[in-house]
């Protein structure tokens, strides 16, 4: 039986001496472990407690974000999920997009979308104003 030695292509980027890929590998695992708690509790509180999805409206969000606890929770979840997802998609693009140009444009689009999501999401959490609802019963709006 003729066996042949598999040919392994040289890495695309030989010049890189940085440990970026190692740190990104570690980050996927660290952020993943944290996200288990952040995301599953988020789903439980919003979809299982109270009236479930029926209870989710502007007043519900106002109630949660009047507490620094949930503001911090959601901010941490936003940043970790978006960076974890972006890094995951970066890997997938590197795996499947073989042409340099295609890889470049897909990753540019990915990073642009990620910046938009992180900046917009962070602004929304910090500039949220529960009192734009005239029916608000929160004490800060009286």
């Amino acid at each position: 039986m003729a066996t042949s030695t598999p040919v392994i292509q040289a890495p695309r980027n030989l010049a890189s001496k940085s440990n970026f890929e190692l740190y990104s590998w570690l980050f996927m695992r660290l952020s993943g472990v944290l996200l288990v708690f952040l995301v599953l509790a988020h789903l439980f509180v919003n979809l299982m407690l109270g009236d479930g999805i029926d209870g989710v409206d502007f007043a519900f969000v106002a109630g949660k974000w009047s507490s620094p606890f949930w503001q911090t929770w959601d901010l941490l979840m936003l940043w970790l999920a978006q960076l974890h997802g972006t890094n995951g998609l970066r890997t997938i693009i590197n795996d499947y997009a073989e042409r340099d140009g295609t890889r470049f444009w897909l990753k540019s689009l990915l990073y642009l979308a990620s910046i938009v999501v992180i900046v917009l999401g962070t602004l929304v959490i910090f500039t949220f104003d529960p009192c734009i609802d005239p029916d608000s019963t929160l004490s800060v709006c009286q």
Partner: peptide, 16 residues
């Protein structure tokens, strides 16, 4: 989904 979800949640800055 996260992309869509951050956009729909951003509507709390528009109006109730």
């Amino acid at each position: 989904f996260l992309f869509a979800h951050v956009l729909d949640t951003a509507l709390v800055r528009v109006s109730p």
